[in-house]
């Protein structure tokens, strides 16, 4: 995420604030589309997804914190949570490019999903997924 106007190729950054959550079938480990009434996060007043059916969700972390708890409202009105922790770094790219916020070593703090695992990687446009949830 770059917070300033960029005019040169040097300003290209692959960092991201979005965590990629992949739902997989517990039995086959194949991607499995899961339906949610809405997905949001504690400290956010924005609904990231509503009435959605997908196997992959891109969820924004709170950039002012090193912890974000996402709330998944199921179609039966039950709620699942996924709480992530990560290291936040500020990096000044250059005077013209501005600064970048980096989120590294994403791990699961706790979750109500039966089985979930983190790849422990960084939030980056180069990483296809960060979290796997078996459903």
């Amino acid at each position: 995420m770059l917070f300033s106007r960029c005019e040169t190729t040097d300003c290209i950054t692959f960092s991201s604030r979005f965590v990629s959550v992949q739902f997989l079938d517990t039995a086959t480990s194949n991607p499995k589309a899961i339906e949610f009434s809405l997905i949001t996060a504690i400290d956010s007043e924005v609904i990231f997804y509503s009435d959605t059916l997908s196997s992959q969700y891109y969820l924004p972390v709170n950039t002012d914190s090193e912890q974000t708890t996402f709330l998944f409202l199921n179609i039966d009105n039950s709620i699942d949570t996924l709480s992530l922790i990560y290291d936040k770094k500020e990096k000044l790219i250059s005077e013209d490019c501005g600064f970048d916020l980096l989120f590294n070593n994403v791990e699961i703090e706790f979750t109500t999903f039966n089985k979930a695992e983190s790849l422990g990687n960084d939030l980056s446009r180069l990483n296809e997924e960060n979290i796997k949830i078996y459903h």
């Binding site: 917070f3 924005v46 924004p60 709170n62 950039t63 002012d64 600064f99």
Partner: peptide, 18 residues
């Protein structure tokens, strides 16, 4: 000394100083 402001469309706006 680094200070920055963030306008966040998903959470809330904030400032930070290091």
């Amino acid at each position: 000394d680094f200070s920055y402001q963030v306008t966040d469309p998903f959470y809330y706006d904030y400032e930070n100083n290091i």
